[in-house]
Design a protein around this nucleic acid. Sequence first.
DNA 1: ATATTAAAGACTCTTAATATCTTTAATTAA
DNA 2: TTAATTAAAGATATTAAGAGTCTTTAATAT
Lengths: 133, 133
Amino acid sequence: MRYSNATNYALHTMVHLMLQPEDSAVGVQELAEMQHLSPTYLSKILTKLAKAGLIESTPGAKGGYKISRKKHEISFLDVIHATEGDTSLFDCSIHHEGCLIENVMRQAEENMKAELKSKLLINIAKEAEAKQK
Amino acid sequence: MRYSNATNYALHTMVHLMLQPEDSAVGVQELAEMQHLSPTYLSKILTKLAKAGLIESTPGAKGGYKISRKKHEISFLDVIHATEGDTSLFDCSIHHEGCLIENVMRQAEENMKAELKSKLLINIAKEAEAKQK
DNA sequence: ATATTAAAGACTCTTAATATCTTTAATTAA
DNA sequence: TTAATTAAAGATATTAAGAGTCTTTAATAT
């Protein structure tokens, strides 16, 4: 069981966009080159992020992607949710409800998600920026 | 991203084996019927559990599977590890080491695994037993 | 009107999970 | 020692999801 590559790319793209000057859009071309991906593939991922309201896209010349307004509220979980969907790590396919095993698994998952919700991307972006200098 | 069905079956099988009288082996036939699985398929899962030392198998007449000695030490994580392997939920395929994003993801995973390590199957088995009465 | 860029859809390729079947090896009981 | 029983192992088939490409369409700026 592993998070998809798409989630990895999405997280890195988000951090990159957070480090851009205010109101400057970045094209998929540039974002794709940075991560050695094909633009069409990354485009799929970016569209997911846009649909989740995490980034804004504008087509046409001088268009591209930029982070959505609420930059300081975006968590790891937000991004993961956008790329992975909101499926559970564990479903008991045997019992219809009240499975004791499922309860334990769900609780562990909840706690992990709570942690990932508390981790904001902006902090990683700042750390990355500081590291580079 | 989801844990495999095999993990679900493995957890339920383990709980079932824990509720058996001491030293009585259960054949794959019975275990498979209980979960509406084909014996050959469940057999694969059981072999993994056996290799991980969680259950013991004896071939031949009157053979079958029984829980290993250290019944009171077996955690959810032990079973998950047996069926899923010890892969990480997240690998940053871009950075070779010290990826800030990976660090956050790994920490969250560690915490979840710590929780699953603290949850013992024997307690679920006892709960299930009490529930039935 | 033209160039640019994102979105959407169809499609291919690869990989992992799921599952079955057959053969082999080990154990018990007659 | 033979027959019946049961797990292990290997080969193989099927399915589903992820990864990735290509083409067409729609929106925007100059």
